[in-house]
């Protein structure tokens, strides 16, 4: 018994359905998605081997003194350490919090870290934590991320308590020493502090500033 209603299954339906099934199977069998978002190992090695990822303490001091508006210092130490001392204008994002996600599933610090306007410079006491923060952000392909070479220990050795160059030192070394002495004056507020610079008077103001920034999620 033949009726004149159209057939249910037309050839083009089968074709479209097959196309969709193939696309669906493809999604099931292709490897993990998340890995694709990260930088490739070779790419990372290249960046690790280059000096482009670091700023020296002198460069940071110069940027701070000149009031570079694009500099965004991120202190990856614990909040307690940050309270005691931090560089002027730094934001405190403890390393453990770096990849924390908010309730919408986005990285909490995405606005501050994943942008291409400001120069983000991580620092910690030494190099280790800051460089880890740097490599995490690099793997996430965040742009303009760096870390401060030598960390705060290096900061104290070079900026706060610079060693006088030897008598046989070059003009450049002498110039650098003069710059550091000037920078020390700037960061210590003019007073001469021989030791225990960890209680530098600059700590109060930047902490307040940082608190405000952290609350706003660091948008720009």
């Amino acid at each position: 018994m033949e009726d004149n209603k159209p057939r249910i299954i037309k050839k083009r339906y089968i074709f479209m359905a097959a196309l969709m099934i193939i696309a669906g199977v493809g999604l099931v069998v292709i490897p993990d998605f998340d890995k694709m978002k990260e930088a490739h190992a070779e790419e990372m090695l290249l960046q690790i081997m280059s000096d482009e990822k670091v700023f020296s303490t002198d460069e940071i001091a110069e940027m701070l003194i000149s009031g570079d508006p694009l500099l965004q210092l991120i202190d990856v130490r614990t909040p307690e350490e940050f309270e005691k001392f931090s560089l002027p204008g730094a934001i405190n994002i403890p390393l453990a919090d770096l990849l924390t996600k908010d309730e919408t599933g986005h990285y909490k610090w995405n606005d501050a870290l994943n942008q291409d306007v400001k120069t983000t410079v991580f620092y910690s006491n030494g190099d280790i934590y800051a460089s880890r923060a740097w490599s995490l952000c690099t793997r996430l392909k965040f742009k303009n991320v760096y870390f401060m070479n030598g960390g705060l220990n290096g900061w104290f050795e070079t900026i706060i308590q610079p060693k006088a160059p030897a008598v046989s030192a070059s003009v450049e070394e002498e110039k650098l020493y003069q710059f550091r002495l000037g920078a020390r004056q700037y960061f210590l507020g003019g007073g001469v502090v021989e030791t225990a610079a960890a209680t530098a008077p600059t700590s109060a103001q930047p902490t307040k500033k940082a608190g405000k920034k952290a609350g706003g999620g660091g948008g720009c």
Binding site: M20, I21, G24, V25, L27, V28, F33
Partner: peptide, 15 residues
């Protein structure tokens, strides 16, 4: 389940 698997199941369900 993975997102890909979910899409695949949904495709089958749709067809």
């Amino acid at each position: 389940i993975s997102a890909g698997m979910f899409v695949f199941i949904l495709i089958l369900f749709a067809i």
